[in-house]
Design a protein around this nucleic acid. Structure first.
Length: 534
RNA sequence: GCUCCUGUAGUCUAGUGGUCAAGGAUAGAGGCCUCUCGAGCCUUUGACGCGGGUUCAAAUCCCGCCAGGAGCACCA
């Protein structure tokens, strides 16, 4: 396979002709190719040359990178890896609009998210550093009659575009146009009073393509360059220039930007430049999320969310904080290929991917959500400690010792479900539950508020009973678990959890995977965990 | 409304004219295993949007329809 790939494309074809037809493919090689294809999941890049592919990701800095942006990250990264090319991060930080402004802290957030995803760009660029480069070709475009200055009010411009009517200044001579451009740069116009538009065709069948705006005026105080510039390019113009200057070979992005590709191509043809090849993917939605950057931004700002790493933002750093591995996200994303179909995928698919990675290596621990105290009457006095395996299938992962008394914590829900029955405290003993649980006194909350449930020890051997996880009272620690449903789920964890270090991953038996977070949220909790998934 | 894109099982995907009586993943069902409602193993249900055409042969090509989606900002 590599040998064939090493023959230049033309040479390969000549060779085929020489042999009088396609080389027969051996079954073994066919299989190997299928395997190769399966691993990568993405089609080959058209016209890609080994070592010469240059890609870019261009986020607008208005918040953290979330799972939706992961596609741009992992698909580009995959091609960089496959062709040993380059991958640039280009901050698309022009002024934006009234509703959409660059947010200063986003630059760091995005870098942090990329790091969380395990992807390091080969270079980082900022559009806000490159305004002069964008201005450079404007006079030429005006001279060529490929662009013009339009002083229509925004509403009129829009209306004319809809009806296909050309604005008055569209066909004025280049000298006039250049003078207006100088005027724009020099402060003659206020925001909204003049724009530069590309001259396509006011009768173009696609109304979206009619004489789009290339530059507009804004007084916005930009987080990086302040008020140094008033004339800002639109995304498509800035990229028409940068994609060429940075030597980008392939632009892979969402299909919502197809019009912008066409604009870039129109500009290249006007300027006599050659740009990259475009590829697109369709919309990706994660079923149980309605991620909105602006909503997240509001909730982060107001403090309703625990910063941008709050799992509810679905930011990449929040996924890392939950213990979702970049490799799981990568597999998840690449499995969608490059189809332009719009898709909606359940988060469960991502979780399944992550579970596959985590399960074999993650130590088991006991955590009891919404606990109730259970006192075991007749607890054997010789039973002062238990040794529990860290992983049921991997004895080499060792065991831990748990100190015992006659007092335990068990999930109240499981006790309710099994009143009057015999249950097994998993890996330990069997007990008989009372016919009903003593009612909680109204008023007081908290773990120790409800009266103890008293159960009776029956015996020790394993029996086919409902097996419930438990936490022994000696050394038990209050644990705070952040789940998507309940950001503040309080429970009891086994003593070993007290010494968990940030980043430690556990599978809480009968509960799910969680990762130790640095700071406990609740003063009452000894440790805080962020829930990943069941 | 206009422009463009997409339609393979519940979901995602492979498939580029015959080897497809359609493969994989995930979810569902059943079983085995397991002192977790986790993992693993086995079995199993389930799909080419519809209608025409081209062809010896169509999931694959063409046309029409239908259904979804995106764009139609002086946002990105």
């Amino acid at each position: 396979m590599d040998e064939v790939a090493a023959i230049p494309a033309e040479g390969r074809k000549a060779r085929l002709d020489e042999l009088g037809g396609p080389i027969p493919v051996s079954p073994a090689r066919k299989e190997a190719e299928a395997q190769h294809e399966k691993e990568h999941g993405l089609p080959p890049l058209p016209g890609a040359e080994e070592g010469k592919v240059v890609l870019r990701l261009a986020p607008f800095p208005s918040g953290s990178l979330h799972i939706g942006n992961a596609r741009g990250l992992f698909v580009n990264e995959e091609y960089r890896r496959r062709y040993h090319g380059k991958f640039y991060l280009v901050f698309d930080d022009t002024v934006g609009s009234e509703e959409k402004r660059p947010v200063p802290e986003s630059y760091d957030l995005i870098l942090r998210d990329m790091e969380a995803a395990g992807i390091r760009p080969d270079a980082i660029y900022y559009k806000s550093d490159r305004l002069e480069l964008y201005y450079r070709d404007v006079p030429r475009l005006l001279d060529l009659g490929a662009a013009y200055v339009c002083t229509c009010p925004a509403e009129l411009l829009r209306k004319n575009r809809e009806t296909g009517v050309a604005c008055g200044e569209r066909d004025r001579e280049p000298t006039w146009q250049r003078e207006q451009w100088v005027g724009m740069l020099g402060g003659r116009y206020e925001p909204g009073e003049a724009v530069v538009r590309v001259k396509t065709d006011m009768g173009h069948p696609n109304p979206a393509f009619r004489d789009r705006v290339l530059f507009r005026i804004s007084d916005f105080d930009h987080p990086r360059v302040g008020k140094k510039y008033r004339v800002w390019p639109m995304l498509e113009y800035a990229f028409a220039i940068d994609d060429v200057l940075l030597g980008i070979t392939h632009v892979i992005r969402g299909k919502e930007l197809i019009i912008e590709d066409m604009m870039e191509e129109a500009l290249w043809s006007a300027l006599g430049l050659k740009g990259p090849t475009f590829l697109h993917w369709g919309l990706l939605r994660i079923r149980e999320t309605k991620i909105s950057k602006s909503k997240s931004y509001k909730d982060v700002k107001s403090g309703a969310y625990d910063g941008w790493a709050d799992p509810r933002t679905w930011s990449l750093s929040s996924l890392a904080r939950r213990g979702i591995r970049p490799e799981a996200i990568r597999q998840f994303i690449l499995s969608f290929g490059l189809s332009q179909a719009d898709i909606e995928v359940p988060a469960e698919t991502l979780y399944a991917e992550n579970r596959r990675l985590l399960d074999p290596t993650t130590a088991r621990r006991s955590f009891v959500p919404s606990p109730r105290r259970l006192r075991v009457e007749g607890m054997p006095t010789d039973l002062r400690a238990a040794r529990l395996a860290n992983h049921p299938e991997h004895p080499e992962m060792g065991e831990r010792e748990v100190a015992l008394s006659d007092l335990f914590f068990l999930p109240e829900a499981d006790l309710l479900k099994n009143v009057g029955k015999e249950i097994r405290l998993k890996d330990l003993i069997n007990v008989q539950l009372p016919p009903e649980l003593p009612a909680s006194e109204p008023g007081q909350g908290g773990i120790n508020a409800a009266p103890e449930v008293v159960a009776r020890f029956t015996d020790r051997p394993n029996k086919p009973l409902p097996r419930i996880q438990w936490v022994a009272a000696p050394g038990a620690v209050a644990v705070d678990v952040f789940t998507l449903d309940d950001p503040h789920l309080l429970g009891m964890g086994e003593a070993a959890l007290a010494s968990a270090k940030e980043g430690d991953l556990f599978q809480f038996e009968r509960f799910g995977f969680a990762r130790a977070d640095p700071q406990p949220l609740d003063a009452a909790a000894a440790r805080r965990f962020i829930f990943a998934h069941p």
